[in-house]
Amino acid sequence: MKKLIAIATGALALGLAAPASAADLAARPYTKAPPMVAAIYDWSGFYVGANGGGGWARDCRNNVTTVTFLGCYDPSGAVAGGQIGYRWQSASWVFGLEAQGDWADIHGTTQNLGNALNSLSTKIDALGLFTGQIGYAWNNVLFYAKGGAAVVDQRFDFISNATGLAVASAGYNTRWGGTVGAGLEFGFAPNWSIGVEYDHIFLGHHDVTFINNTTGAALADTYNSGGDVDLATVRVNYRFGGPIVAKY
């Protein structure tokens, strides 16, 4: 009997001790997850780049003296050059200043409606844009509008249909005008971006004095010539500065 009481007492003691031992175990430590970090593209900083594409112009020529319409046509050709600028970003808004210079080979001819012996010719060999920008960024995608001043180096000629040579020329005229445009740019790597841009240059018409290429004398009649220019280019830029900003 005493043996049975001892066994029962020992079992009860083990039962009471088991929960106490479990309670004495250390609680599992809790580690707070680190905050999520979103990397956003930063468009701020100086940049340099190259561009290339095409241009389309308009030339409508008139003899002002005799009030004679000579014809209209659309010269076209390639452009290539570079740009340099600076942008700064505030939240999703991006502001910038840029200077662009391009070599151009925009040219064309058409028959002179006032003289069956020659044709009208125009060539643009250089242009520059000096603009301000305002844009909106979706991380590494930037849409922007631009506007400012433009300068174009343009030549006007009368070409002999028989020889293909210029019989009278106005030489290269440096013309200033306004410009507006828009572009879409994509940051594809740290500090590198690629984009497309369209620009319209307002040149209008102006009076031009032609020189006889044989005699060197100015033609007696005054002519009015010229028109606007459109550009479509692909651009690649390298930006100096940090490519991303960590945002919590």
Rank of each mutant, 00 (worst) to 15 (best):
K2C: 02
K2T: 08
K3M: 11
L4P: 01
A6R: 10
T9F: 14
A11K: 09
A13M: 14
G15T: 02
G15E: 09
L16S: 11
P19G: 09
S21C: 04
D24N: 13
K32F: 08
A33T: 05
A33R: 13
P35H: 11
M36K: 13
A38Y: 12
A39V: 12
Y41P: 00
Y41E: 03
Y41D: 06
S44P: 00
F46H: 02
Y47A: 04
V48G: 15
G53S: 06
G54R: 04
G55D: 09
W56R: 03
R58C: 03
R58E: 14
D59N: 15
C60T: 15
T65C: 04
L70I: 04
Y73A: 07
D74G: 07
G77N: 07
V79L: 10
A80M: 10
G81L: 09
Q83I: 04
G85H: 05
S90A: 05
A91S: 11
A91P: 00
S92Y: 07
F95I: 05
D102P: 08
W103L: 12
I106H: 05
H107L: 06
G108D: 08
T109Y: 04
Q111D: 15
N112C: 07
G114M: 04
N118D: 13
K123L: 08
D125Q: 11
L127C: 09
L127I: 05
G128H: 07
F130Q: 01
F130I: 03
Q133R: 15
Q133C: 03
I134A: 13
A137H: 00
W138N: 03
W138P: 01
N140R: 08
N140P: 01
V141P: 00
V141M: 01
L142T: 01
A145Y: 03
G148R: 09
D153W: 15
Q154T: 14
I159V: 15
I159W: 00
S160L: 10
N161D: 11
N161G: 15
G164W: 03
L165F: 06
V167F: 05
V167E: 14
G171M: 10
G171N: 07
Y172R: 11
N173K: 13
T174N: 08
G178S: 07
G178L: 01
G178M: 02
G183L: 08
E185Q: 14
E185D: 15
F186C: 10
F186P: 06
G187P: 10
N191S: 10
N191G: 10
W192L: 15
E197I: 03
Y198E: 02
D199C: 12
D199Y: 05
I201P: 07
I201M: 08
F202C: 05
F202R: 10
L203S: 01
D207G: 13
I211K: 14
N213Y: 01
N213F: 02
T214W: 04
T215P: 09
G216V: 14
A218Y: 09
A220D: 12
Y223R: 00
Y223P: 00
G226W: 04
D230N: 15
D230I: 06
L231V: 12
T233Y: 08
R235A: 12
Y238W: 10
Y238L: 04
G242Q: 12
P243I: 05
A246L: 14
K247I: 13
